[in-house]
Design a protein around this nucleic acid. Sequence first.
RNA 1: GGGCGAUUAGCUCAGUUGGCUAGAGCAACCCGUUUACACCGGGUAGGUCAGGGGUUCGAGUCCCUUAUCGCCCACCA
Length: 731
Amino acid sequence: MNEKYLQPYNAENVEDAISKIWEESGFYNPDEMIKAGLTDPNAEAFSIVLPPPNVTGTLHTGHASMLAIQDIMVRYHRMLGKRTLWLPGTDHAAIATQSKVEKLLQKEKIRKHDLGRKAFLERVNTFAQDSHDTIVSQCKKMGASLDWSREAFTLDKEREHAVYTAFTQMYNDGLIYQKERIVNWDPKGQTTISDDEVVRENRKGTMYTFKYSHDFPFPIATTRPETKLGDTAVAVHPEDKRYQEYIGNEYSFNFAGEDVTVKIVADEHVDPEFGVGALGVTPAHSVADWDIAQRHNLPLKQVINEYGKMIVGMEGVKDVKVAAAREAVVEWLKSEGLLLVKEDTIQSVGTAERTGAVIEPLPKLQWWIDVNKKFPAKDSKIEDIEKGQMVSLKELMLHVVRNEQIDILPSRFEKTYFNWIENLRDWNISRQIWYGHRIPVWYKGDDIFVGTEAPSGDDWKQDEDTLDTWFSSGLWTFSTLGWPNTESDDFKTYHPTNILETGHDIIFFWVARMILMTTYLLGDIPFETVYLHGLVRDAKGRKMSKSLGNIIDPVDLIGKYGTDALRMALIVGNGPGGDVNLDENKIKAYSKFGNKLWNITRFVLTETESINLDKDFEYSLRDQELIKEQEELFQELTKEMNEFKYYLVSEKLYHYTWDTFASEILEESKTIFENGSTEEIHSRRQFLLHSLKMIVTMLHPFMPFITEEIWKDLKNNDDRDILMTVSWPTL
RNA sequence: GGGCGAUUAGCUCAGUUGGCUAGAGCAACCCGUUUACACCGGGUAGGUCAGGGGUUCGAGUCCCUUAUCGCCCACCA
């Protein structure tokens, strides 16, 4: 027996050595598996794309959990003999990365405009490269069997070509258009953001009820008096008796130094029960008011600029930030005797997901994707949609989930998905930041050119804006497989992918966008199953955050307990959609399990030292009984593997190994070895060896390192050298 | 305002399509080392499965209801 078993299991030494074996084998790459004769070239394909981590820093425990789940899926299918690809990459994460680098520059007292676009982007690229390198090494530490030879980046040349191709097609189909409309403006990030990048927060505010002027017939209420300088109407409910006589009238007056004219309009949107039942309409600075203005053809008047400062008004208001201007306007109302009521209220404030700034709705010229416009469907692999049939993006997105061509797990998220799509508005895809895919539109005078490359000839100027990062992420399942070349081997073999495993927090940002892009561009689905995992929380179930100081670094945990133990702690009891509380004690428990398995191996090897697995003999009655029990369990486990119930399989393997195999069978074996007949002893030795091989094989997707290490001492001549490439037991 | 989820042992949680005396890890208490493993073994204690009602031969599991907590979505000024 190998002397290593005389010492307790040392995860750290073993894991590094095993990683090396796997990487040097090249078997993460399915092509190498085929070359070595380990995978049948005609085998069914199985593919997953890694949700590309943002190059904004290092991986956290959430990533660790994601890697563990996906690696289980991948190793399992590889062992089933499938042509298995797990494709890695990273995401440039436009705004997130740019604002991170801006913060770093701020510490050096450098502003990005002083550097200029080119120098700034060099800084960002350096930062992104560092993050990338850290992420790659962390993925490897987790034992993730990713095919690095196919690694991609959302902002590299190949992906740019895919992005430009997609943009051009959508533009030519009239799905991408440019229009001035009210947008979510982030005054801190100096860019627009899409609706789902706006995080709503309930904050304390003050509701002011006042009259515009002494001549105005009735009061209105608002939480933002400073925007009233931009009012162009007052809306009331059409059936509200109090205001009937005023509908259609126009009133002009001076408000805090600005000449204002408002028209009284009747609109169903107004709730007569709320406040005074009359709403000052500010089309340029409120999304709801913009919609009212559209319905009544009202003029637009911008009073706040991109820096969140007032551009009109009296002294103390003009050129002042909105918060201070609000105070000034309220003071003015008081002094004029126009303020009637001031009361505390809770208001829902939109903030920018990345910068935390309060969103200032502003009218701006932007690029949009029309989700309602009908277009002829591409050559369609979508069930019940024929080629050329007129469909909208929204319809396609709903259709493929409704007809279960795409399955979402857990299924309750399907409802959430439908609800979101049904209320979807056009997608604002242009951003006023530097880091990202530059919009593939060029201008020369009044001419406009949209294409995958700059037009020939001088004086063409490319659009300054970049694309929303999710535009490129939306193409991920096929831009990584060679698209727009649909004839490439990878594309033909691995698309659509089988499973998308990701967090339920990005179902709208990403999952929905991938479905949008793929159904539109390919007339196909991007993946068959969406497996959504929850959040990794701390031991007490709290969200990990910097302010709570409860962030756990997966690398520290691996150093302490080993990757196998961490993986088990993240998997057991963690079903789809559920949050997992990561308790260090749980990891500790599974590191003990590793040692248990180690000692089981020691016992079995000691007792079976001189023998090989014998295929031609009959088990004793007792052993036949044990085999039967075992096979029943293993069949059940295989079924559960196919149902994505990794949380059950891992737990059951743990209990079988410890409570049944070690506590009962090994103990019983001691008696047999002492008192049994020759036949009984031989049978039991065979049984132990056989069982341990089965256990180690089935545990491999969960605890890849220790099982691979044990396999070295367990394999026979006719077994494959590397456990990763061994077949999953078929019973 | 709409939707979803949770509530099981001191703590953190499993419990798969309703089916034998409700489980795990950690914590607590007692005992055990001539060895596969003290990173261990054996044992003890601890739960009216949030409350109430219903369906059923049978409910932690299904239905209704109440309470508490949490999450997501939404243009109530």
